[in-house]
């Protein structure tokens, strides 16, 4: 009753059907099983840690938007004067999408990879490295997008979104979160100690503070502006601001392309790295 010797079992039949499809050695089409695992782990273990991510951007909005904002007054954007809180809200939205995706793909992924042995376990089944990469990046995307959407609801309640264009912030947040998750998981898969993860944080904080989050980057010299414009957070902030204030131009397509490339390259590199680590 426990098992049948050499029988073609359900699991084997599934794998054999799949083997006729292209890329079957790296992708079994079951990244949803990894999302399910994330969901169960959230319910059983991680619910509290998950909730904290909703609060952080709201604290920044209150402290900077309304606290510091009281001293700043209004900021001109696209020829319109907007309250300071409205100016930083899309930037905080971008940052919360980033933070959710990055927290999950750095510390959580590192823990799952090196302490839980989770990816080794997953890949001892008929799953492939692309299933695991897509599932884990997808799960981190859900987390980042959830924070961003949660924040969007708060911001809207505060009356800081003024046009229907703001609805486009939802797919934008999904894209940005996916791209950051891809980047985060790629970097984490090459790391061997928690100390190296702390180095990553060392880069994240200045990026958060100086990427046009709280003031325009035109205050910097030209060369520094170019450097900052290359960072994913500046790209995300520019995309979110553009959508929030309905400033839609060719630049927007550029930002979308930037994240599409980042997402694809990161996904590819992560899958390749998982294959090298656990199937070679």
């Amino acid at each position: 009753m426990i098992t049948g010797a050499l029988a073609t079992t359900a699991a084997v039949a599934i794998a054999e059907r799949r083997a006729r499809r292209p890329l079957s050695s790296v992708y079994a089409g079951r990244s949803h099983a990894i999302l399910l695992r994330g969901l169960l782990a959230l319910r059983t273990s991680n619910a509290l840690a998950f909730m904290t991510g909703f609060v952080e951007p709201v604290l920044f909005l209150v402290a900077f938007g309304y606290g510091v904002g009281g001293l700043v007054g209004t900021v001109e954007i696209g020829g319109v004067e907007v309250p300071y809180a409205a100016y930083i809200a899309p930037a905080l939205l971008a940052a919360s999408a980033m933070n959710g995706a990055i927290i999950d793909t750095t510390f959580n992924v590192f823990f799952k990879m090196h302490y839980l042995g989770l990816y080794r376990t997953m890949m001892s089944t008929s799953l492939g490295p692309l299933d695991v990469a897509l599932g884990e990046i997808g799960w981190a995307m859900i987390r980042g997008a959830a924070y961003a959407i949660g924040f969007l609801v708060v911001v809207t309640a505060f009356g800081l979104t003024t046009t229907w264009w703001a609805l486009l912030l939802v797919p934008a947040a999904v894209l940005v979160a996916f791209a950051f998750a891809s980047l985060g998981m790629t970097l984490t898969s090459y790391m061997t100690s928690f100390q190296q993860l702390n180095w990553l944080n060392f880069f994240l904080l200045p990026m958060f503070l100086f990427s046009g989050t709280f003031y325009p980057i035109t205050t910097y010299p030209q060369w520094l502006q170019w450097v900052i414009e290359a960072t994913p957070l500046w790209q995300a902030i520019a995309l979110m601001r553009g959508l929030t204030f309905g400033v839609l131009d060719g630049g927007l397509a550029g930002h979308v392309a930037y994240f599409a490339v980042l997402a694809t390259v990161g996904l590819y590199l992560t899958a390749r790295r998982l294959d090298a680590l656990f199937l070679r």
Binding site: A10, A11, I14, A15, L36, L40, S45, S126
Partner: peptide
């Protein structure tokens, strides 16, 4: 991060069962 039963269940899902 999972319970005993969830460990078995998710592992089966990895096989697509």
């Amino acid at each position: 991060e999972l319970t005993v039963a969830e460990n078995l269940y998710t592992y089966g899902r990895y096989f697509g069962l």
